[in-house]
Design a protein around this nucleic acid. Structure first.
Lengths: 190, 190
DNA sequence: TACATTTTCTAGCAACGCTATATTATCTTG
DNA sequence: CAAGATAATATAGCGTTGCTAGAAAATGTA
């Protein structure tokens, strides 16, 4: 009897729709527009249905964030492919900023909004590690302490994103700043 | 007739109290606990009084943020004093992280929460430039393009703060990461 | 003392996240 | 196939939020 399977599939479909709709609304109108009522309207169900999928609103944000971590991982590995050494670092850095600034709401869910997604802890989702390791991969050839170098690289990129996104540094000089960051890594270790 | 002056003074006092209370609550219970009703209770007035001082809740957050920019400016200049060159950079970087992590809610108001405080624009408040220039001061001896170097330095520090604050990089290796950032600046230009 | 003006408060709106409870649909069983 | 049990969904509402219109009180002026 595939009846239970069909039900499971329909539930999973609905859950995906919720996350997809949340992402679209967030990207087009900001996260404040992503309300439970609005989501319920969009998927044509009542509000309590959402709570049968997610514990609360934050959990929905976290689900979108998780998609973001999957996507950025792909984008970074794409950027690294075909180049090596110093060039690979530059390409990955550029891709990181590009991804973040092209998907501001998504990036917000990943790094700004409060979610239960934790990194340093034991039960860290693999999606969260993957992006970190994409950074680590291009950094590795240049340094002894990969962990420290990757964390610093990541932090620098994240900082550039946030300050640019909030209009606190000039959008124009982006590539010069990236060049500086790249040099940090290249010169540093080895 | 000093009667109008007294009134002005009392109003200014009350406004300062609002900001101070908001800061205290935010730091001890988080920004979600800073509601208009709560603030009104604390200053022993009704809610509409708050709106005679500030346009909306965000404006109160912005006022706290402005205090933060004044404070961090002092902290950074304090840290720079007495040391020169590479040491000055390290001290300032350490002070920056220390300040941010000791005053998480304040830092949140300055950089995370949505406010109307803009940097790049014409009417930028001097408080917002001051901190940037404190960073620029220690960076200047080492680079040709001060603006780019300072922006990058700042971004790196901000990124370290945010990733550490959200538990995404190890708190332990902080000084190693700072050392890496310092090397970026020192090696880069000149 | 009576009036005018400014300041403050009371009371309430609309929207929010979330949930207890009623209702409907679905499956199981006599 | 109808009746009862079970699971899924909807209705309606609670408490809280930011914010505001209009009543009330305090203050200054004559």
């Amino acid at each position: 009897m595939g009846i239970a399977e069909r039900k499971d599939r329909q539930r999973a479909d609905r859950e995906r729709r919720i996350v997809a709709v949340a992402r679209v609304i967030a990207e087009s109108e900001g996260w404040n527009a992503v309300t439970i009522r609005r989501l319920a309207d969009e998927i044509e169900h009542s509000q309590p249905v959402l709570y049968s999928h997610f514990d609360n609103r934050d959990a929905i944000v976290a689900a979108v964030a998780l998609e973001g971590f999957r996507d950025i991982n792909v984008a970074l590995r794409e950027a690294a492919r075909g180049s090596t050494g110093r060039n690979a670092i530059k390409n990955v850095a550029t891709a990181y900023l590009g991804f973040a600034l092209r998907n501001p709401a998504l990036y917000e869910a990943m790094f700004i909004l409060p979610t239960e997604l934790r990194f340093a802890e034991a039960g860290t989702r693999p999606e969260l590690r993957a992006g970190f390791e994409a950074l680590a991969a291009v950094v590795t050839p240049f340094c002894v302490d990969v962990e420290v170098a990757t964390e610093t690289f990541w932090a620098a990129l994240h900082g550039l994103v946030e300050l640019e996104r909030s209009g606190r540094i000039r959008p124009g000089a982006r590539s010069e700043r990236i060049a500086l960051i790249v040099r940090t890594i290249v010169v540093s270790g080895k």
